[in-house]
Computed example of a mutant assay.
Amino acid sequence: MLKENLSLSQLFAIIIGFNLGTTLVVVLGITAKEDAWITVLLSTFTGLIIASFFLNINELVPSKNLFEIIEFGFNRFIAIPITLVYSLYFFYLAARTIRDFGELTSTFILPLTPIEIITLSLMLIIGYILYLGIEILGRTTEIFTPYSALFLFLLIIFLFASQNISITKIQPVLARGLLPVIDAMFPIEVSRPYGELIVMTCVFPHISNLKMRKKSVIYSVAVSGILLTIATLIITSSLGITTASRATFPLLSTTRLISIADFFERIDALAVFIIMLGIVIKSSIFIYGGLKGLEYIFKFPYRYFVVPSVCIISMFSIFISLDINDHIKEASLVVPYLLYLPLQFAFPCFLLFVLLLKKFIHKGNSPLHDKTYKNP
């Protein structure tokens, strides 16, 4: 099978779309109240460190994804159960992301359409893209991601034009000090979306230009962080922190404030496009990461698992929670502590320690190499 490659611009677009993803569904840093935007901004700097950390793991064993690196650090016998855990973890996050899309669509766009039909329709598109390959996802993302940034800035312009933005709604700045901002960052705001970038370790090997890969990743994380900061600032300064914290989909609620001369209004489609594209990209990357795990375990090309995986994830996204309130509660109270901390930080740190120890034992300054596993 020919190796699939991604360009630097495609990687740049994928990470921006991935980070925006479902992150725009809720207000980030809401526990910091008026300083929510400061929480998001500081989280971006932490996100740069996290992205560099995942890159360093890949660079120690070039051209290998997360699961192959785990085998190199330990052995295949140990790597298989760990790979299974990560595959299920990625599929679970994909199901949560798909559920976000279903709730958004059934609430604001197609209220009379069953959420099962909405979810299945999206999964058919994602399954088709993944079956064609990661290159197709890269090209699709490269084309549409600039529109998301453009639409976000258009929303800002329209909000200013309709005089809905008030700086007083985010004042006073740091009235309670910096401690509430830091408390809001950990673990949720740092883990989502930056800790979730661990799935990108399954994408990094597809970049042939290793020298420029790190710059592309760092720049994309920085740009996405700035966009998230701007979005949070606009939402809180338009709705106010009380209304924003109660809104199910705050970006859409903010968009509905736009009314210029009682003529130019109801431009929800811009916000829906931004969120929908991010959800497609994010869920596709999560599913791709899980499929690569199955490919490693069973030694069959990941395309063999696309159809059954898509069907199972589609079904699981329906049963994952009772309603939107239960869905959001689980994301903020359960997931960060049971999944984010051990799988995004604890085990990767241990893996990096093992890789560095092996490199020290081999006393080599060049990257580590291993031939125990070959892609099918």
Rank of each mutant, 00 (worst) to 15 (best):
V223K: 02
R213K: 15
A271M: 02
L291F: 04
V280G: 05
T229Q: 05
S245M: 06
A269I: 14
S284D: 13
A247E: 11
T232L: 01
I285G: 10
F249Y: 08
I226H: 06
F264W: 11
G225P: 11
V217H: 03
R256E: 13
L251T: 02
T236I: 13
A261V: 05
I230E: 06
A222D: 08
I260D: 04
F273R: 03
F263I: 13
L270Q: 02
A247M: 12
I287D: 11
L257E: 08
T248F: 06
G240V: 07
S238V: 14
S253W: 07
L252V: 14
I260Y: 05
R213G: 06
T243F: 13
G225H: 09
I234Y: 01
T232R: 01
K214M: 00
S259F: 00
I281V: 15
K214V: 05
T254L: 14
R266V: 01
L270F: 15
G289Y: 09
P250L: 07
S224P: 07
I275G: 05
I285K: 09
K282P: 12
Y288G: 11
A269D: 02
F263Q: 10
I275A: 11
V217C: 00
I274R: 00
G289Q: 06
S253T: 14
T243C: 00
V272M: 09
A269E: 08
S259D: 15
S259V: 00
I285M: 12
A261P: 00
V217K: 03
L228E: 05
G225R: 11
R246Q: 12
L277N: 10
L291S: 05
V280P: 03
V217T: 15
Y288V: 10
L233D: 03
R266D: 06
S259Y: 00
I260G: 07
V217S: 07
S238K: 04
G289W: 04
L270N: 04
L270T: 08
I235G: 02
I285N: 10
L291Q: 06
S283V: 11
I230V: 15
Y219I: 12
L251E: 00
G225K: 09
M212Q: 09
I218K: 01
M212C: 00
S220T: 02
F249G: 02
I218A: 01
S237T: 09
K282S: 14
Y219E: 01
A261K: 09
A244L: 13
V221H: 06
A271F: 05
V223Y: 07
